[in-house]
């Protein structure tokens, strides 16, 4: 009898178990896309008796958009001090000794409730043999200006959803578009947030004190429009797109917000066209909208590839 029961149970299990396993959809998205939510201290500088703590997501700087938080405390007492006029300037020194910067917020915004100064940097390159990054920080305490400098290491952004693009517009200005959010897109509707920046060409020759901030100045462009057409570039997807997307327009936080829909996981290309206040095209081309199976999707001359 026992044998029969055992046999029947085995038969049941064999019959009931699926031939192919179901896809673990949630786990699959998790492994492809790392998501960082926590700010951690990336660097700490001790200067003139003050401790400057520089925080970034995951305590690491990556190429692309990085939100930066600075906290300045008294190194002795560890207490907050009354600071004002905090400036922040990233400089990359290339092997040829040429100095460049990247889009950043120079005058950090005081967030007294949260206890830090807020800024960002859009690193265009990672730290490597061709160049290295340094942060130049200045702040004022009791009418006295203090400066500090920190070598930093910028890592390659592994998450393609945080990619960026830099290009020259038709107005001969240099522009940067950096994806801010979502870090971890999902199938369906995603609010797409990007920063759009322009390099301000210096009018004057550099002054003698290095670094001269006027040589490394960037602005968040205002009232531009970033037209969006997301598509799957794989030949097998035949230029597949999604409905209900919204172009990116600027909000009060200075960033550009729009809506992107992903119909499935995989490789997507965000095809953009950047328009200035007057609606003139600065960069980007319309892409074909036909369904063309077997043919790799044509991308706009301004696009960012993502993957999730």
């Amino acid at each position: 009898m026992k044998e029969i029961l055992f046999f029947l149970t085995t038969v049941c299990f064999v019959v009931l178990s699926c031939t192919k396993e179901k896809t673990d959809y949630e786990a699959e998205i998790d492994t492809v896309v790392p998501e960082y939510k926590e700010f951690k201290e990336a660097y700490a500088i001790n200067s003139d008796g003050y401790k400057i703590s520089i925080e970034a997501l995951n305590g690491t700087f990556y190429t692309g958009y990085n939100e930066v938080r600075l906290e300045i405390t008294d190194s002795q007492t560890n207490e907050k001090v009354n600071v004002s006029a905090v400036t922040f300037l990233p400089i990359r020194t290339n092997v040829d000794k040429r100095n460049v910067s990247c889009p950043h917020r120079y005058d950090l915004i005081d967030k007294p409730d949260d206890g830090y100064f807020s800024g960002y940097a859009v690193f265009t390159d990672r730290s490597d043999a061709d160049g290295s990054w340094e942060l130049y920080i200045s702040f004022t305490i009791a009418d006295q200006i203090h400066t500090a400098k920190q070598d930093i290491s910028v890592h390659e952004q592994a998450n393609k959803n945080m990619n960026m693009a830099m290009f020259e517009g038709k107005d001969d200005e240099q522009y940067f578009i950096a994806l801010v959010s979502p870090q971890k897109p999902k199938v369906g509707e995603n609010e797409l947030v990007a920063g759009i920046y322009r390099f301000n060409k210096p009018n004057n020759p550099p002054s003698s004190d290095f670094p001269d901030a006027s040589q490394f100045s960037y602005t968040e462009v205002s009232d531009y429009t970033l037209q969006l057409d997301p598509r799957m570039p794989e030949p097998s997807m035949g230029n597949h797109s999604s409905p209900n997307n919204k172009d990116l327009t600027q909000r009060s936080d200075g960033l550009y917000h729009g809506m992107v829909n992903y119909t499935m996981t995989g490789n997507w290309t965000l095809n953009f066209i950047l328009l200035n206040q007057q609606g003139q095209i600065l960069r980007g081309t319309l892409v074909p909208t036909d369904f063309t199976p077997g043919v790799e999707g044509v991308k706009s001359e301004l696009h960012i590839d993502i993957l999730f």
């Binding site: 699959e28 492809v32 199938v187 097998s236 499935m264 996981t265 995989g266 490789n267």
Partner: peptide, 14 residues
């Protein structure tokens, strides 16, 4: 599950 031309790459799923 759709496969890209290069099968080793990330598949597309819905």
């Amino acid at each position: 599950t759709m496969y890209p031309q290069d099968r080793s790459k990330k598949t597309m799923f819905a």
